[in-house]
Amino acid sequence: MRFILSAVLLCAASLFTGCSEPLACTEIFIPAVSVTVKDAQGNVLKDARVTYSLDGAAMKDASCINSEMGGGCAQWSTPDQPGDYLVRATSSDGSRTAEQRLQVDGDECHAIGQSMTLTLR
């Protein structure tokens, strides 16, 4: 009984002093933004190019996270970093473009991932 009471008192004391166990972050990749590109009819465009800018920096190529057999990419991602994103999709022939801004928050370890669909018209 004394052991249980001591444990409870130690836990309560840590709440009031602000002490806590150090946070152990995982190494799991969580994209800040997952992007799907579609045409005006709602079909996934697997040959589009997706780029992004983080906090106003130069545009970079997004990574393919869902490649299709026979080539192409059904879903793209940005790094696991919070910030202000500008995401742009361009058709393979360069004739159609869509873009969207998105603010991504984060916790102590990762970005809080969000998804978006860009429609090329």
Rank of each mutant, 00 (worst) to 15 (best):
1 M>K: 14
3 F>W: 12
3 F>P: 01
3 F>K: 15
3 F>M: 14
5 L>W: 15
5 L>Q: 15
7 A>M: 15
7 A>V: 15
10 L>G: 15
11 C>S: 11
12 A>C: 14
13 A>N: 01
13 A>D: 02
13 A>W: 02
16 F>C: 07
16 F>A: 10
18 G>C: 12
18 G>P: 09
18 G>R: 06
21 E>W: 10
21 E>G: 05
22 P>H: 03
27 E>T: 13
27 E>R: 12
27 E>A: 12
28 I>L: 10
30 I>V: 12
34 S>A: 07
36 T>R: 11
37 V>C: 05
37 V>W: 00
38 K>A: 07
39 D>M: 02
40 A>S: 11
40 A>N: 12
41 Q>W: 14
42 G>S: 04
43 N>Y: 13
44 V>E: 09
50 V>K: 01
50 V>T: 01
52 Y>W: 05
52 Y>M: 03
52 Y>L: 00
52 Y>K: 00
55 D>G: 05
57 A>S: 14
60 K>H: 08
61 D>C: 09
63 S>T: 04
64 C>I: 04
65 I>N: 02
66 N>T: 08
69 M>W: 09
71 G>V: 11
72 G>T: 10
73 C>P: 03
76 W>V: 03
78 T>H: 00
81 Q>S: 11
81 Q>Y: 09
85 Y>T: 02
86 L>S: 06
87 V>W: 03
88 R>L: 10
88 R>K: 13
90 T>K: 10
92 S>R: 04
92 S>C: 06
93 D>L: 02
93 D>S: 03
94 G>S: 09
96 R>E: 12
97 T>K: 13
100 Q>C: 01
100 Q>N: 07
100 Q>K: 09
101 R>N: 06
101 R>K: 09
102 L>I: 14
103 Q>A: 14
103 Q>V: 11
104 V>M: 03
108 E>F: 05
110 H>T: 03
110 H>F: 02
111 A>Q: 01
111 A>H: 07
112 I>M: 10
115 S>V: 09
117 T>C: 03
117 T>W: 02
119 T>Y: 02
120 L>C: 05
